[in-house]
């Protein structure tokens, strides 16, 4: 960047950069030195100062000064404020808002339809409790398990994983009484 015999536009641009504080220290010092003897440079500083101060106080429109993060806001921030473009922008915003609303409705509508695992368990327990109450009222014995114990759960698990001959052995052992009867003695004698 040089200050030697610049054109008017160059001088104006130099002055604007100087007023904005964009010149390097060396260039700024050189420009200031030129100001001492150049009324034209002084006039350029006056014009630059007037322009920059006016721009600082012009009151930038709200849509263009907001810190935009979302795509919709970016559209607002970068749009040229002519009628045609603002009309297109409005349609785009309406479309984005409509899509967002649809997504929200779908999410809200979908969530209560799908019961969770806990919901299903609670419902099964309620049904079982109602059956139990019906049986008690009718004086009948209840065939099903009153409370599902951990052993039942283990047996159910074994039923899935263990072979049938192993389960048969376990069931025979379970039916065997703690004290041998007379019939057992006879059989042992034989």
């Amino acid at each position: 960047m040089t200050t030697s015999s610049p054109t008017t536009n160059d001088l104006d641009w130099l002055a604007e950069q100087y007023v904005l504080g964009e010149l390097s220290a060396e260039d700024a010092a050189r420009f200031e030195a030129a100001l001492a003897d150049s009324p034209a440079a002084c006039e350029a500083v006056v014009a630059a100062s007037r322009l920059v101060l006016s721009l600082q106080t012009v009151g930038w429109a709200v849509p263009t000064t907001t810190t935009v993060t979302s795509p919709a806001k970016e559209l607002v921030g970068t749009a040229h404020p002519t009628d045609r473009r603002s009309g297109r922008l409005g349609r785009q915003l309406v479309a984005i808002a409509a899509v967002a609303a649809c997504c929200l409705v779908l999410v809200l509508a979908w969530s209560p339809v799908r019961p969770t695992t806990a919901d299903r368990q609670v419902r099964a327990e309620v049904i079982q409790a109602r059956e139990l109450m019906d049986h008690w009222r009718g004086g009948r014995s209840f065939a099903g398990p009153l409370i599902a114990s951990e052993e039942d759960d283990e047996a159910a698990d074994l039923g899935d994983a263990a072979p049938s001959w192993m389960l048969a052995a376990v069931s025979i052992e379970k039916q065997k009484p703690a004290h041998p009867t007379d019939e057992d003695d006879v059989l042992e004698d034989n």
Partner: peptide
């Protein structure tokens, strides 16, 4: 009157130029 003319001129700037001016001056 300077401000009024300036607003008018800003609106006539191309969007990419206006964006740079806004970022430099306002932000």
């Amino acid at each position: 009157e300077d401000l009024a003319r300036l607003r008018e001129a800003l609106n006539q700037l191309p969007a990419e130029q206006r964006q740079v001016v806004e970022r430099r001056i306002d932000r």
